[in-house]
Simulated assay, not measured.
Amino acid sequence: MSAVLAVMLALGQVAGCASSGGGGPVAQAIDDATITAGVRAAIERDPALKVSELEVETMQGVVQLSGFVGSADSVAAAASVARTVKGVKSVKNDLRLK
């Protein structure tokens, strides 16, 4: 968990520097990486969800969740958790039941 926070802090500092130059592809990629890290951290904090079984990708603020979970409730919970992360514009939920 501390490694995830360290990555988020490091990316957050870099994102702040990169976005001050007016944004662009590099700033967007850094912002997407920050969002991905935030979604992973939020999902990791939920004891019902297992990060190792989920893939999280972000493109221009749109988060895609894929992989397998044990219940329909987990499918809904993962999407709900992802939507709470700052910067997430929408969530594409491609999770499947085991």
Rank of each mutant, 00 (worst) to 15 (best):
A79D: 13
A33P: 01
L5T: 15
K86D: 09
S19F: 05
A37N: 02
A29W: 00
K86T: 03
V56N: 05
A10F: 11
A79P: 01
G38M: 05
V69H: 06
R83K: 13
V39E: 05
V88G: 02
L11C: 06
S20N: 05
G70P: 00
A48I: 03
V56S: 05
Q60I: 04
A6Y: 13
V51L: 15
F68D: 07
L65S: 09
G61W: 00
V69P: 08
A3F: 11
K50C: 04
E44S: 09
Q64R: 15
K98I: 01
K98H: 07
M8D: 10
L5F: 13
K86G: 02
A42Y: 01
L9V: 12
A27R: 00
V39S: 03
L49R: 08
M1N: 11
L97F: 00
A37S: 10
S19C: 04
V56T: 12
T84A: 09
A27Q: 05
K50N: 10
A72M: 11
S2N: 15
V63N: 07
G67R: 10
D94H: 12
I43E: 04
T84S: 13
I35R: 01
V81E: 07
A82T: 08
S2I: 15
T58K: 00
G70R: 08
C17S: 12
A27C: 04
V81G: 03
A6Q: 13
A42F: 03
T58I: 06
G87F: 04
F68N: 13
L95R: 02
S80Y: 03
Q64F: 09
K50Y: 08
G16D: 10
G24N: 01
A3P: 00
P47S: 11
A76R: 15
V14L: 14
A78M: 10
V75Q: 09
G38P: 02
A37C: 03
L11Y: 11
A76M: 12
A41Q: 13
T84W: 00
A33K: 02
A79N: 12
V75Y: 06
V39R: 05
Q13E: 07
G22N: 05
A41R: 14
A72Y: 13
S52N: 13
V88R: 00
V63I: 03
V88W: 00
G16R: 09
I30S: 00
V75D: 04
V56I: 13
L97G: 01
A10I: 12
K89N: 04
L49E: 08
V62H: 06
G12R: 06
V39D: 02
R96K: 15
R96Y: 00
A76T: 14
M1F: 12
P25S: 12
M8F: 06
V14P: 00
K98P: 07
G38I: 10
A15T: 06
G12V: 08
L9N: 14
V81I: 14
V4A: 15
L5K: 14
V51E: 10
I30V: 14
D46R: 08
R40P: 02
V88S: 02
M1Y: 10
G12C: 05
L95D: 03
L97E: 01
I35H: 06
V62N: 06
L97Q: 07
A76Q: 14
P25L: 10
I43V: 14
L97P: 01
